[in-house]
Design a protein around this nucleic acid. Structure first.
Lengths: 335, 335
DNA sequence: AGGAGTTGTTAGAGCGCTCTATTGATGTAG
DNA sequence: CTACATCAATAGAGCGCTCTAACAACTCCT
C-alpha cells in the first residue's frame, strides 16, 4: 500500500480510502491510485483489513453434507442474497459428523467471518447458544426457540404428518419410518410421523427404524425391515437421499414401487424430480430458505434488529409415482 | 492474549508460544496458559496470526459446481489428505460461471490462504498462469502443460475414446456427442470422441451438439437431436449430470434406453451407480484425484519441490444397463 | 474582512498476533 | 571457580491495514 501510495504520489491513508470506495476522494486522486495499484498488481490484504476494521464482509456457511443436493440448493439462495448485499460467502462442510462440523465452525471463528450460517446443524442447543455468544448466527433447516440467534426452516413435523396422511388416504396401515438419527429436523419428522399415526388410529403400526441422512442408511433400513417382522406396505424415508437408497434396495430385492411398497421421501431435491426416481416427497423451498437465512444474518450484522426471528415455512406434498394404493398381495405372494 | 497472559502470570509472547504448540515451554506454564485461555474463552485471531506469520495453514478449494456430486467426492479426498497434513480447507463455488469463479478465487487471494486448489476450472491458461504467480496453485480435473503449477486429472481424451469404442463394438455407427462447452476437460473429451470416430471409420457420423456440464443441457441436447436430422442410436453425454437430463428426456419422449438409444455418461458419480440410473460411464477415481491434488499442493507449500507435476490417471469404463447392442428398429417405427 | 462550513488529504496510533534478539537461570565441563 | 551451553521466558519491533483527529485550501455568508 505504501508502494502504491508513493507511485501515485499520495499518502497511504488515501490509498486505503480508494480501496474502500470512499466518496470523499477526488476523481483525480482516485484514478491515479487505481492506476498505480493496477501497475503493481496490488491486492489488499483482507487479514490486515479485518484486523484494523473488524469487518470482513464475509459470511461463513457450514453445510452438513456436500453429497446431499439439498445443501447445494440452499447455497444458491444464500449466495444470491449475500452477494446482493455486498457480502461474500465461504463454505465449509461438516461431513455429517459432529466433530467435523465443530472444526468447520472453528475455522470460521478463527477467520473472524462477520457471521455464520449453519445449514442442517447437528449441534446441541447448548452448543448453539454458546456459539451465538461468539458470533452472529443463523441456523437454517432446523428450529429452536433460542433468543440469541435466528432460525429458518420448514415445519418438519407438519411435513411428516402430510406424508402419513397421504399414505393412509391411499389405504396404507403398515407405514414404517426410517429416521434421520442425529440429522437436523429428524426428531421433528419422527415426532410428526408418530403423532399422525396415532391420530389416524394406527398406533399399533408405528415402526421406526434407526437411520441417518444418507443413501446407505436407506439400504440398511430396508434390510432391517425385511429381516424382522412383517414388511410394511409403505415406507417414509427421512429424506430424499435416503429414499434413493431405499428405492435402490427395494428394486434389488425384486419389490416393485409403488405396487408392492409405497415410498415417500423428504426435501424434494432435484434428484427426486428425475423421471427415473419420480419420488413422492415433501417440498422444501430451498432457495427461499437460503435467501431468508442470509437476509436475517445480514440484518443482524447491520444491527437493524436485536430480537431473534424464528421463521417457519409451510411445506407441501409433491405426489409422484413412488406412492400408490395399498396392494392386495402380501409379501409372501410377491416372493 | 494480553489478558490471558496476565491471568496466567506470564508474558504475551509465552501465550503465543503455547498457542502454537511450541516445545520450548515448560509443562507448568503451558497448563497455566491453557487454563487461563479456557476461562476467558480466548480464541486466537487467525487474521492477526497470519499477518505476523504469513501462514494460515488453510487451503482454498474452488469447486466449479456444488450441484454435481463429482465435486463432493473430490472434496472428500482433498479434505482427508489436507487434514492429515495439518491443514484445513475452505470452500467456495464457481457456480459454473467464469465471473463467479474469479470472485471465488479473489476471496481466497484476499484471505491469503496458503494455496488454492481449483477443481474443474474454466479459467484460461493465461489466467491460470497469472494466478500461479500470486499463490500456490494446483488444478484438478483438467490438464495443462504449465510449469508454474501442478495438475491432476484422468485422461479425458482416452476416456472418450473408450466410450466410442464400447459403443462401436456394440454395433453403433450414429453416435452423437453432447459436449461440455467451457467445462473442464470438455475439449479433450470432444477431441477424443472425434478421433475415435475417425479411427473407427465413422467420420461421416460425427455429430456434436453444444452443451455444458448440467442436467438441463442434457434435456436441451436431446431436443436438438430429435428436432434436426436422423436420431442417433447412441449418445455420449459429456458427464453424468448431463446424462441424467438426457435419460430423463429420452424416457419422456417415449424412447427406451438402451433398446432404442444407448447412453453413456462420464465421471461415474454415485448417482450413476443407482439402480434407477444404472448408467454406463467412465470412472474417475475422485477420492484419489482429490488426495493427489492436496498432496501436491502441500508439497509446494512446504517447499519440497520446485518443478511442476502433471499427473494423468488412466480412466476405466464401467458398463451398466444404459448401453446395449444397436436396435434394428428405426426411429419412425418406434414412434 | 472574518468566521463557519465543506472538501480532500494526511500523520500517527493501534488492531492482535509472531519473531528475533536478549536476558536470567540452571547445568556441565575444564 | 570460571567459561560455556542449554533452557524458559520476555521485550519490543513489525506485519498491512483502518480510523480518528487535525490540517490546509476553498467557498459561502453576513
Amino acid at each position: 500500500m505504501e508502494d502504491v501510495a508513493s507511485r501515485a504520489g499520495v499518502s497511504r491513508a488515501l490509498v486505503s480510502l480508494v480501496m474502500r470506495d470512499s466518496p470523499r476522494v477526488s476523481e483525480h486522486s482516485r484514478a491515479a491510485v487505481l492506476e498505480a495499484a493496477e501497475e503493481l498488481g496490488y491486492r489488499r490484504n483482507l487479514m490486515a483489513h479485518h484486523l484494523a476494521s473488524h469487518r470482513t464482509m464475509t459470511i461463513g456457511l457450514v453445510l452438513n453434507d456436500l453429497h446431499n443436493p439439498f445443501f447445494a440448493e440452499m447455497t444458491d439462495g444464500i449466495h444470491e442474497a449475500a452477494l446482493k448485499a455486498g457480502y461474500r460467502i465461504v463454505i465449509n462442510t461438516g461431513l455429517r459428523d459432529l466433530a467435523s462440523e465443530k472444526a468447520a465452525i472453528d475455522t470460521f471463528l478463527e477467520f473472524r467471518t462477520d457471521g455464520v450460517i449453519l445449514v442442517g446443524t447437528e449441534l446441541s442447543e447448548a452448543e448453539l447458544e454458546s456459539l451465538a455468544s461468539e458470533t452472529n448466527l443463523v441456523v437454517a433447516a432446523r428450529v429452536t426457540a433460542s433468543d440469541s440467534y435466528d432460525t429458518v426452516s420448514i415445519d418438519d413435523r407438519l411435513g411428516a404428518q402430510m406424508i402419513v396422511d397421504h399414505l393412509a388416504d391411499l389405504g396404507h396401515c403398515r407405514i414404517a419410518h426410517i429416521d434421520g438419527g442425529p440429522g437436523a429436523g429428524a426428531r421433528k419428522r419422527r415426532k410428526g410421523y408418530k403423532a399422525a399415526m396415532e391420530q389416524r388410529g394406527l398406533s399399533e403400526h408405528v415402526r421406526i427404524v434407526a437411520g441417518e441422512y444418507s443413501e446407505h442408511a436407506g439400504t440398511v433400513g430396508v434390510d432391517k425391515l425385511l429381516s424382522d417382522g412383517e414388511m410394511p406396505t409403505a415406507i417414509f424415508a427421512a429424506n430424499d437421499l435416503m429414499a434413493t437408497g431405499v428405492l435402490n434396495r427395494l428394486q434389488f430385492e425384486g419389490l416393485n414401487v409403488p405396487e408392492d411398497v409405497s415410498l415417500v421421501g423428504f426435501d424434494n431435491t432435484a434428484m427426486a424430480a428425475l423421471h427415473q426416481m419420480s419420488l413422492t416427497t415433501v417440498d422444501q423451498p430451498c432457495e427461499l430458505l437460503g435467501k431468508l437465512a442470509a437476509r436475517y444474518l445480514i440484518e443482524r450484522l447491520e444491527e437493524e434488529r436485536e430480537e431473534a426471528v424464528h421463521h417457519l415455512l409451510v411445506p407441501s406434498l409433491v405426489c409422484r409415482s413412488t406412492s400408490g394404493p395399498v396392494s392386495s398381495r402380501t409379501l409372501d405372494e410377491i416372493r
